[in-house]
Design a protein around this nucleic acid. Structure first.
Lengths: 139, 139
DNA sequence: CTGTATCCAGTCGGATACTG
DNA sequence: CAGTATCCGACTGGATACAG
């Protein structure tokens, strides 16, 4: 699916912005229910992506996650997991041992989310330095 | 941007394992400087993506943006634009008319960010209903 | 037209202590 | 082990008024 992009003297009115395809409801009423904004705000918090990535590698127990992340508080790990579970991105399985053990894993939905997140991570790895530079260039 | 845009590579049968490639620094010290988390938190606020998308369609003046978004406060539009400008995603051009006119536009960096954001928007459009369903299934 | 300054409610996230 | 309960500072985002 490669666009030939031969010598079209593009009027440049529309720059080569593939992103123009990005259909986001901009009008007030719809915007509240915009799934993109919704997902971004869920994933834009401090720990969600980190947890998703860890669970993407392998299912883990609560304490394993806490050790892996190192500086997350118990409270925030619980809250983050509950939120992800609530949105169907993470599954929670309790084994009735004593004391209880709980295993968290990505659902298929959660797995699939890692794909576009991975694209964003790639972009960040490439352009992160440019952002840093822009910040230093100002204040 | 003179880059011949080769569109988003058609995701040919993405395996559910691809996400394991996502290399995010999980260990405590690095994580503070993780560019992915950094970008996500920037973009995970209430208005940034909306503004980026609008500017991706065409450069706009302050008042145009405010009319386009409709329910953003003057304060938040200013803050959002300043933040995006600070990170080199948006450019700000002041025309010394009376009264002043200011035009905002995406930088190349901002343009390029719309690509992975578009991927995330696509995912959200497809799987948004599944998230909604998961929420209703619980409370 | 393009902002800035204040105030204010709500949320985020950390610290600490306690429980089945 | 896997949480819950409480408190608290910091930040987010809206409303309103004012200014160059």
């Amino acid at each position: 699916m490669s666009v030939p992009h031969t010598a079209v003297p593009a009027p440049a009115a529309v720059p080569t912005v593939l992103a123009a395809d990005l259909a986001l409801p901009v009008t007030g009423a719809d915007r509240a229910a915009c799934p993109t904004t919704d997902v971004l705000r869920r994933v834009g918090d401090k720990w969600s992506v980190l947890v998703l990535v860890l669970l993407g590698r392998a299912p883990r127990r609560f304490s394993e996650l806490q050790r892996a992340v190192e500086d997350i508080s118990q409270r925030m790990l619980t809250r983050t997991l509950r939120a992800l579970e609530h949105d169907g991105l993470v599954s929670r399985t309790v084994f009735p041992t004593v004391p209880a053990t709980v295993e968290y894993a990505l659902t298929e939905l959660g797995q699939s989310l890692l794909v576009p997140l991975s694209a964003l991570a790639d972009w960040s790895a490439v352009h992160g330095p440019a952002i840093q530079a822009a910040r230093r260039a100002q204040g």
